[in-house]
Design a protein around this nucleic acid. Structure first.
Lengths: 345, 345
DNA sequence: CTGAAAGCGCTTACAG
DNA sequence: CTGAAAGCGCTTACAG
């Protein structure tokens, strides 16, 4: 564990001042081209890497952004969403040599406290807000703090933070029209947590479209995204009289669970029941039949969110119009597979 | 964005020196009980939170540990393993007020470079090494660096780093004995990446046990853990003559894929084919039939790994015997479910 | 028990 | 273009 090399060492070796070394290293004016070249060569040779803490203290920037997740190990693990999002975020951060710090919290209050502490400590320069709820108190809290943040989800209005979201309504309409075209009239939906914003958006979109198409019924049951509750809801739907001929699931895990329940009840998919899933992980292609599902590029979404956060941090203002960005995800498309067909005659 | 309050502000308000404030805040001797109480009260009232960078620079510790993952967005997302591990790690870190910094890399060289930089920058105080391979070059590299690290996996020998691993051999034996008792003689295995250490351990354990039990055959196909390759391998196994009556999968995603292939080929599970999965996520309970699988508590594993890393960082030496810890995971147990039964007569 | 000072390793005005 | 110095916000010997 040899002592680290500092700019003082380089300055001594090059016979210049520490200031000159700093200017050379950071590509600033203030040193001649020849001195700069010499300093850079020496720095490289000595394997110099600047100390983060010292740099942060001087420029009062952490070169790090944070993400706090209010999730349990189980719900984190089961959903590919977060890892894909983080993977996209990372791609942008690495390019800008920012670090990512991750914290898992148990309650909203803990989460708010994390933001307060992070910002007070200057441990992060900005954060991502995920799992946006209806009337989410975190948005105002973080804005009041003055902590740069990007809202990963929406639509949100009258917020002092840039937000990025997918259009949730159009896919709902697409799915319903697709099932309607196949001939389905009694459609059910196993939906996600009602407190989440995008669940509400989908609720509304389905209701409107169903009315417009004149569908017989669109029963909705809200659960928590887990396979257990998805299975339970499916069992309930399929054992009532006038059962649906098609069920839409708000994520893929519940759809897989629903398919198993149909098998268990001896219902043939897709002959007697059609199934559509949101969030097309490879899970949907592993079942038999493969599940018709809606694909979105979550990694690309993460890249966009990170781009906006870095812009916000570096310029003090988000990228143009970032305050209300809708990610028109070119990839939000329906992939019909073996789990959908016309309803039984 | 009001100016942050620093110890200088508190010192001024309390009418003492900055040194006294520091002593009081850190619970060190050097201030009277009354002064300490007064300082603490003022600090709390002013909402003081110490600046991380300043503290790090003084004590030359980052209060952060790092984890670099060489995985793609897809393989990260599909496997609950990492999120569960991270969730456990977080629990320990939060308790010790350490942060976690996460980086996703593309190649081993990139990963090594990340460790070098992190340590030179003093951005982390230690790291976790995951996805341990056979003759993994990272172990020596990190040890040479002097960077405190915990090897998450094993067994590894002659390494200068503490390692923590589950016993992989015993469960292999248990599974094989279970299938043998049911009457199976032709068993196949769809295994994980051969370059990974634990895959090799399992290879050996199955071979030994199969020989000891006098099993007819244990065919193994190594793939990459994805459902696609798991399905492909299964198709290959089931369409050859003398096909196996039971298949063991090294993770749950491949097992689910394998089940779908059996359905597709019109094979009844478990009547004509038994299936056993490793890594019991809720996936295994969502299929029909539910999959017999091996459960381990990954979150607890993460907690243990983090405990050891923090001990290593704070004392310079790992916890007693940490150099070769085997986590005798009480939870590594086989859960027989609907996917296993005696072979067809 | 307390205060004044030096130091951690950078950056950045400010003079020459 | 270059050097000497102050400052970021802490911690920690070192004198009183």
């Amino acid at each position: 564990m040899a002592r680290r090399v500092t700019i003082a060492d380089i300055a001594a070796a090059a016979g210049v001042s520490k200031g000159a070394v700093s200017y050379a290293l950071n590509g600033r004016p203030g040193v001649s081209a020849t001195t700069r070249t010499k300093i850079l060569a020496i720095a490289a040779e000595m394997g110099f890497v600047p100390n983060r803490a010292a740099r942060s203290l001087s420029v009062s920037s952490a070169q790090t952004v944070g993400i706090a997740l209010r999730r349990t190990a189980r719900t984190l693990g089961i959903e590919p969403y977060f890892m894909e999002l983080i993977s996209g975020i990372e791609a942008t951060l690495s390019a800008g040599s920012y670090g990512l710090t991750l914290q898992i919290v148990g309650t909203v209050d803990e989460e708010l406290e994390v933001y307060r502490r992070w910002w007070a400590e200057r441990r992060v320069d900005g954060v991502f807000l995920c799992d946006i709820g209806i009337n989410d108190q975190r948005l105002d809290y973080v804005a009041d703090l003055g902590l740069p943040a990007v809202v990963v989800g929406g639509p949100v209005e009258n917020v002092r933070l840039p937000a990025v979201w997918h259009d949730n309504a159009a896919p709902c309409q697409e799915i319903l029209e697709y099932l309607h075209t196949l001939g389905h009239q009694r459609i059910a939906r196993v939906a996600g947590l009602p407190r989440l914003l995008h669940t509400g958006v989908r609720d509304t979109a389905y209701a409107h479209t169903a009315a417009a198409l004149g569908l017989e019924s669109v029963t909705t049951i809200h659960v928590d995204y887990t396979g257990e509750q998805g299975a339970q809801a499916t069992r309930r739907l399929l054992t009532t009289s006038g059962r649906p001929t098609a069920i839409i699931y708000d994520n893929d895990v519940m759809a897989v669970a629903g398919l198993a329940v149909a098998h268990e009840l001896g219902l043939l998919v897709p002959q007697q029941l059609s199934i559509v899933a949101w969030d097309d992980s490879s899970l949907c292609r592993l079942t038999h039949p493969a599940l018709t599902s809606l694909t979105r590029d979550i990694t690309a979404y993460g890249i966009t969110c990170a781009d906006i956060l870095l812009t916000l941090i570096n310029t003090g203002t988000p990228a143009a119009d970032a305050r209300s960005i809708t990610v028109e995800s070119q990839s939000a498309q329906l992939f019909p597979r073996g789990s959908t067909a016309p309803p039984p005659a």
